[in-house]
Write a protein that binds this DNA or RNA. Sequence first.
DNA 1: CAACTTATTATGTCTGCACATAATAACTGT
DNA 2: ACAGTTATTATGTGCAGACATAATAAGTTG
Lengths: 231, 231
Amino acid sequence: MKKITTWQAIEAEVMRRISSKMWQAGELIPGEIGLAEEFGCARATVNRALRQLADAGILERRRKGGTRVARYPVRKATLDIPITRLEIEGRGKAYEHSFIGRKFKRPPQSIQEKMNLSSTQKALHIPAVHYADKVPFLYESRWVNLEAVPQIKDESFVGINANEWLIEHAAYSRGDIHFSAANAKAKDAELLKCNIGDALFIIDRTTWHREQSITSVRLAYAPGFHMKSQI
Amino acid sequence: MKKITTWQAIEAEVMRRISSKMWQAGELIPGEIGLAEEFGCARATVNRALRQLADAGILERRRKGGTRVARYPVRKATLDIPITRLEIEGRGKAYEHSFIGRKFKRPPQSIQEKMNLSSTQKALHIPAVHYADKVPFLYESRWVNLEAVPQIKDESFVGINANEWLIEHAAYSRGDIHFSAANAKAKDAELLKCNIGDALFIIDRTTWHREQSITSVRLAYAPGFHMKSQI
DNA sequence: CAACTTATTATGTCTGCACATAATAACTGT
DNA sequence: ACAGTTATTATGTGCAGACATAATAAGTTG
């Protein structure tokens, strides 16, 4: 009997058994102790491998209940959301950005709801366009909750864009992110130099610090943009 | 000195030090042994916490080089790609689907390239529409490489087993996935019962078994669809 | 000084053991 | 039969020690 003593090897062996139907979907697989004995390794090593597969959605684990092959494995695609400047520079293009305005006003109702603001509360609106080699790449419509980050009021954004400022000052916060498609409206078309009605890839993101919203942003990518990932 | 002996607590403490700027972006943080001493726990526990943060893109770790705070933390959004039937049923709607055709023919060049097929090779084309409460939800244009999965030939003309078989097998294979937006063409509009030009959310996915492509599919979601995620 | 070899170092992983925890099964008394 | 308690079980996690590995620094030789 060949020993399997690295968690990657165990992960691969378990995957092989699943895809070869030796362990069927929905079926309970042997416990960690049994597998550790079979593979001639420690239980912790088996645990590491199975935990990895559970994180990936291939296995479902429950205390006392054991481990079973996910009946409907939810594929998890991990999307990297890079900083726009780095994304553009990573494509070997010159990055520029310009602000379209900067107003402290009451946001539209959709933003109020997303950011959980009262109907009288004002927020800072900072629309901007990011360019790659002078070509419009992304139209960013950002709202900032000044009550959450009052410091931003005094920031001039010379040489740094709002996104990166927020990353530095409000980094590592959690949030929701939505991906969708939308037809370019007049404003989108004007700023992205495309035609009205063109299909745009849209990302809506709202980030929070504790129970307070920091910023809500709508990113409209120029036509032709696509996000890659692996599954 | 208060002991911190769970990896989640250590993870939280490290996050606190990063967001409070105690450890600045790009900066080298203490080694595992040092942190283990400080927190009064085992090195393995610190390792688990730091590994978690490295996986999340917050930290960058290199052997011998140590651990540093990521200068440009790449936000990772994990998208769940469920099976369409479950997604629709999960919204409390009735699921149905119908095949638009089933032909063994030479795919268009774009598919040939994606699937790495020669220009003379044929593939099985299975277009289908998925419905939620009788309303078109998704138009799926799928190509299957019969040379990679010849078994499907036996089942492919029996009924829906082919698709189920494919879902099962493609479920555990690796592949690329692209997200984009596109204007509905005549065919899209007809099948999704929307207007030509409507912005559609598009997923292109090609899955592989070893060096051979199994299937390449274009999913065109009906207008209004959006994908949610957390970061 | 450059090219090569060796030592050092921080992370990566494995082991064997222990205890914690959640979920379930078995048991209990009424 | 039922509600409440206890036992059991598989996973979850922590610890100390050991060795593996990759990357770098230090040392050596031509």
